[in-house]
């Protein structure tokens, strides 16, 4: 545990230096990134969807979906609104039951809510009557104050522990929500367009933060988004959902950490995805 943590610090410092960087430092960073990619810890669990269908009344939202998400992968699911992406996420979380088909996380079938699966909603959904720290440690497990404070520090909000959620900005509230999801060390993290309501700059910050934390923790991540650029910037693999099925399944092999100002290869990938959406 101490090894990745010190690595993280090193990387953070390196990225700080990068701001006014000379070439040598840049090389250090590149090297660190490559090392990191090889050593990336995989604490996540694989998620398996088997012939998954979901209907609301007569309307069939998902039909016969098969999907395998390897442990530790960051998968982005893209699609138009109403294509069933949120439904899919709620099924994986165990919030809703599928009409037919099966979901398994780490080989066990999902029958109800899972303690090792955490969902980040579109809105932060903080309890306004608990302070930030109390929101992060909402499950009140033993020693929650320490773990919650550590998770807050991870998202860079250690100094806001005693504030009320009402005084936080949208981006800060989502970071608190992210800390709340991280507290229990989930093996699968589901994100339901959590950055959709944020302004462009804050969204980029959140991307950096999510990528950084994901690389440190190594959980399996499913990110729902309608922003193709976001999907290409973050994901290992992008899936396009259309008419209840998978229209495109594409790996993204760009080096990490990725820059938001997209290079030509990223633009080409975005164009391919947009064709399918």
């Amino acid at each position: 545990m101490s090894e990745p943590a010190s690595d993280l610090r090193l990387r953070k410092r390196a990225s700080l230096q990068q701001a006014g960087a000379g070439e040598t430092q840049l090389n250090v960073v590149q090297e660190l990134i490559h090392r990191k990619q090889e050593e990336r810890p995989v604490n996540g669990h694989a998620v398996l969807l088997n012939g998954l269908s979901k209907s609301f009344g007569d309307r069939r939202v998902l039909s016969e979906l098969d999907l395998e998400i390897p442990a530790g992968q960051l998968l982005a699911i893209v699609g138009r609104s109403g294509c069933g992406k949120s439904t899919l996420l709620r099924l994986i979380a165990g919030l809703d039951r599928p009409t037919s088909g099966k979901i398994s996380v780490a080989g066990t079938d999902v029958e109800s809510l899972q303690s090792n699966v955490r969902l980040l909603f579109q809105d932060a959904r903080l309890l306004p009557w608990h302070r930030v720290l109390g929101n992060v440690g909402i499950a009140r497990t033993k020693g929650w104050r320490e773990t919650a404070a550590a998770a807050l520090a991870d998202v860079g909000l250690a100094d806001r522990a005693n504030d009320w959620p009402a005084v936080l900005s949208g981006g800060q509230a989502q970071r608190v929500a992210l800390a709340r999801a991280l507290v229990s060390r989930p093996s699968v993290l589901l994100l339901d367009e959590p950055f959709g309501a944020l302004d462009a700059l804050t969204r980029m910050e959140m991307h950096r933060l999510l990528e950084c934390i994901w690389r440190e923790h190594g959980f399996t991540t499913v990110l729902i988004t309608h922003d193709v650029a976001e999907a290409v910037a973050l994901a290992d693999r992008v899936i396009v959902l259309r008419d209840g099925g998978i229209a495109l399944d594409m790996p993204i092999d760009l080096p990490r950490p990725r820059r938001e100002a997209a290079d030509t290869s990223a633009v080409a990938l975005q164009a391919r995805i947009l064709d399918e959406v």
Partner: peptide, 21 residues
């Protein structure tokens, strides 16, 4: 209701749900 749903996802039992939400 979104807060209640959140509390369920984050593993709050019935009593905790009552006292905290």
């Amino acid at each position: 209701v979104r807060l209640i749903e959140m509390a369920r996802v984050y593993g709050l039992g019935r009593l905790a749900l009552f006292w905290r939400v």
